[in-house]
Each structure stands twice: as C-alpha cells, then as structure tokens.
C-alpha cells in the first residue's frame, strides 16, 4: 500500500505547529498504525530529519500511552487503541490526517505527544481508597456481590488514554473522571470516602481547564474500553448526593 500522511508537526510546547505531508510506501495491511509510523520514522532518521514523536509503549492496547487522532477520530476508525489499529482499515492511496489529542488541558509536548498529567492530578484529588499498606482486613471480611464487583470492574477498565477528552467537542474529561468515581464508589471499600471523592475529583477536573459536559456522547463512542455514557450520569448522581450531604452537615 502507498499512503499520504498529513501529520501535525510541532517542535515543542512553545512553537507553532502545522501539518506536514509525507508519502509512505510499502505499507503492509498487517502493520499496526504505529508500525507504519515506525517505517516513516526510520526513513526520516536516515535522511537526517526529525522523526515524528508519538507516545506509545505496550502496543497491546492496555497501557493507554498511544494517543493519535486519525482523520478526526480519536484512535482512528475502529473502536480500539491506536496501537491495535491495523493498516487493513485503510485503502491503498488514502490520505490520512494524524493529529495529537487537542485540549487546553493537554498541552502539546512535541508533534503528536501531549501532556496528560491533568488526568493524574484528577486521580490524586481523590481517585483512591485510603488503605495504607498493612491496614487491610482479611479479604473475605466484606463480601461484595458479584454484580457490584462486575460493575466496579466495568468502570475500572479505563486505561486513562484521554480519548474521551480528545473526542469531546467541548474537551471535557467527564467520562475519565466518572469511570474512576464509579469504580470506587460502588464498592464497599470505597464507601467511607464516597462523597469527598466525587466532590474533590470533580473540583480538580473543573480546575484543570477541561470543558463542560453537554452529553454529546462522543466520549463513549471513542472510548477504546467501552466505558458507557451512563457512567457520567452515575457520577452526576453521586455528585448531587454528595453536595446535598455536604450541605446537611
């Protein structure tokens, strides 16, 4: 396959960026999208040009590092991570636009690499259970009904890639935040911090400069792990409940 790539190039956070065009030849349909970029980068490096910087690590769809917007879609046309997208999803002669996640809260580091530390700070604000090492009771002390455990798991699957933010027309981080709130809030272990968790995490999210949620549903469509849109609804319910409880005190 032969492809035309239009890639966002930006030297660093302060520089202006622009799309640059590259032809890539000899692409096999069995390549992953990132392997196709590897081919391009090997060539650029040999030509003494700066290779295209992009985040990637596990290349098996679980670490959440890869983060490309391909033809306007976060992680490209298939519902998976960029590293699990294969070139057979494209046709010979296609022109493909590759851009970084775009959000004020995700400043570009270089080319297609962005700084997603805002997501870490949301977790730091309350996305945990306070259970210092050594303090844990016997694991079977508190049975957790299977449906509850399954529900927690469904939300815990979030890989923190930020595709939800990238896909949201408003650049909101509601789906990310709600996934962690719900994972911990449905479990009995998360109950003691149920209210502070949601209030603190939402406050941090708002403070990071993410947009507001208008429930367009783009986030859930882009999510490679299938976190459902109702996750946001649940978090809203948790937030209202916590706000009510806080005002009762």
């Amino acid at each position: 396959m032969k492809l035309t790539l239009r890639v966002w190039r930006q030297k660093n956070a302060r520089a202006d960026g622009a799309m640059a065009t590259y032809e890539v030849d000899g692409v096999s349909p069995d390549m992953s999208f990132l392997e196709m970029l590897d081919v391009l980068n090997e060539r650029l490096a040999l030509d003494g040009e700066d290779p295209v910087a992009f985040d990637h690590d596990c290349r098996e769809g679980i670490c959440g590092a890869c983060s490309l917007v391909i033809n306007g879609d976060a992680h490209g046309p298939e519902r998976t991570t960029t590293c699990q997208l294969h070139m057979r999803s494209f046709r010979d002669g296609d022109t493909i636009d590759v851009e970084p996640w775009r959000a004020a809260a995700f400043p570009v580091v270089k080319d297609l690499v962005v700084d997603r530390s805002a997501l870490d700070r949301i977790i730091q604000a309350g996305g945990y259970v306070t259970a210092p090492t050594g303090s844990a009771p016997e694991a079977h002390a508190t049975p957790v009904p299977k449906p509850v455990a399954d529900q927690a798991f469904e939300h815990a699957e979030c890989i923190g890639c930020g595709a939800c933010v990238a896909a949201c027309p408003n650049g909101a981080a509601m789906l990310f935040t709600s996934a962690k709130v719900n994972h911990l809030n449905v479990l009995p272990q998360g109950a003691p911090e149920r209210e502070t968790r949601v209030l603190d995490m939402v406050a941090q999210m708002d403070g990071e400069g993410f947009g507001g949620c208008t429930l367009t549903g783009e986030c859930a469509t882009a999510c490679p792990k299938g976190i459902p849109l109702t996750s946001i609804t649940r978090m809203n319910r948790e937030w209202l409940r916590a706000t009510r409880k806080a005002s009762d005190r």
Partner: peptide, 22 residues
C-alpha cells in the same frame, strides 16, 4: 496472603462468585 487483603482493601475489582467471595 497479605497481598490479596491489601489489594481488596484498595478496591481492586477481583472476580467474585455469586456469594460475593473471591
């Protein structure tokens, strides 16, 4: 043995049986 206790306390969603046990 202690690891499992610790992880459950942190909210790690291990697979469970219908009775609620791990």
């Amino acid at each position: 043995v202690e690891i499992i206790d610790q992880c459950v306390a942190q909210g790690v969603p291990f697979a469970r049986e219908y009775g609620g046990l791990l």
